[in-house]
Design a protein around this nucleic acid. Structure first.
Lengths: 239, 239
DNA sequence: CATATAAGGTTATCAGACAACCCTACAAGA
DNA sequence: TCTTGTAGGGTTGTCTGATAACCTTATATG
């Protein structure tokens, strides 16, 4: 018998995570329904054959995820579906090109819609900050870190100008992700020309928003993103 | 001395959460920078004046949030910003009408884009499941729970048909949220007419997707969502 | 020079205890 | 009867101390 069973070997990292996953399955697959009480920590530790510490850590995990609630002296309860609090977007393999492209494709309609909404709802303060970011972009002669940060700030400010918290939250996350990836990819091809084009596109967006013309803002944002995608050789589906 | 100091009393719920918040602040405000090693659990427990269990639970919390990574036998390290894994959408006050409206406004461009992408990328299997959901909607004579679930499944399947994991993930969350809220609101006005209109709209979307006409699918989805919004008396900005 | 081996530090897990808290039931007094 | 006090048992929260698993570094060992 030459070859050992390698699968069996791994101590299967992080015991609490496995326990948590198991309990989570019990809940999401309905064997423990909403509002129902989980077994006590003592019992769980006995049935899983681990110590109470591990069970506690697992339950703490589930509590963070919003799947259970605990009340001292009472017990742990599966949360009602209506009260689940969070969504997670794991980001592990964005280096993977297909996944990156998927995220960019998701960003497209969001940014466009945000530009339109920003044109409607922006305040004078929003516009001020928008211009600030723009001037920092033009100020950074070359495409330094500062320029990229300003670019990011510009898009973030548009999201803020929608006065819609969800746009800000989600676009903030997506945009940062994408910018970081672009940043790495672009380091090789730092061309003055690209910078000028990018700035011009941003300016067009800014003007459309400032003059409160939503459709024009959407159009400008659309062109900008399509241009940005092509600049990093990304093939998107465009409508 | 008649009045006691009530503020002092509260044992200030969940010790680990407070510790976690404190450490998180150390990281996000840069006093512990990316990649740097945190103090050992033993040291932390001594400096905070709590037991190691509490510190461990706090660190576990941070690990779940993606702020730190731990390596057995080595220590805990603050994560590089680029590798933060998750975004959270807290959902507490969606009963609040403005907030609900904001979420619906975010959903609009996503669903429309998803319909377009689904028209391009859907597989025969996707179409099958789409039809299945549709038949369940028409089957449910009145607007029962079953009908609502089928409605939800229909939209979910469109998101899946984009072959874009992010659309599925995000639309799944948003749509479920919104459906639940609508469900509650609509209970009073269960009209046959509404059901028929809704089904007709869904059918239009389905046909456009099936015939692989993205723009038509987008148009149909657009009309459906506008209709749905008006049916629950929601004022959206439409372009 | 390459490989073992040992030592020390750190996290992971365990075990058992006590504290804080909740719920229920029952007793005592009005 | 109603309210209030009290006791008891059960559960989570926290503490303490110990052991196992693991990593890093230094020190032999051939």
């Amino acid at each position: 018998m030459a070859v050992a069973d390698f699968n069996q070997i791994r101590r299967s990292e992080h015991l609490p995570a496995r326990i948590a996953a198991q309990i989570a399955r019990e809940i999401t697959e309905g064997r423990i329904s909403a509002g129902e009480k989980l077994p006590t920590e003592h019992l769980l530790s006995k049935t899983f054959g681990v110590s109470r510490s591990v069970v506690r850590e697992a339950i703490a995990h589930l509590r963070n995820e919003g799947l259970v609630e605990t009340r001292q002296g009472v017990g742990a309860f599966a949360t009602d579906i209506e009260r689940r609090q969070s969504i997670r977007i794991e980001q592990e393999n964005l280096s993977d090109k297909a996944s990156f492209r998927s995220l960019f494709q998701l960003r497209l309609p969001l940014e466009i819609e945000a530009a339109g909404l920003a044109a409607i709802h922006h305040t004078s303060d929003d516009l001020l900050k928008l211009d600030e970011a723009l001037s920092q972009m033009t100020g950074a002669a070359k495409w330094t870190d500062e320029g990229i940060l300003a670019d990011l700030a510009f898009h973030r400010q548009i999201a803020a100008a929608t006065q819609n918290e969800y746009f800000l939250l989600f676009l903030g996350f997506v945009a940062e992700r994408i910018h970081l990836a672009i940043n790495a990819a672009r380091a090789s091809a730092v061309l003055e020309e690209i910078v000028e084009v990018t700035i011009a596109e941003h300016l067009a967006i800014r003007d459309a928003i400032a003059s409160r013309q939503p459709n024009q803002a959407r159009q400008a944002m659309h062109e900008h993103l399509v241009g940005a995608a092509s600049r990093i050789e990304l093939q998107l589906e465009i409508f």
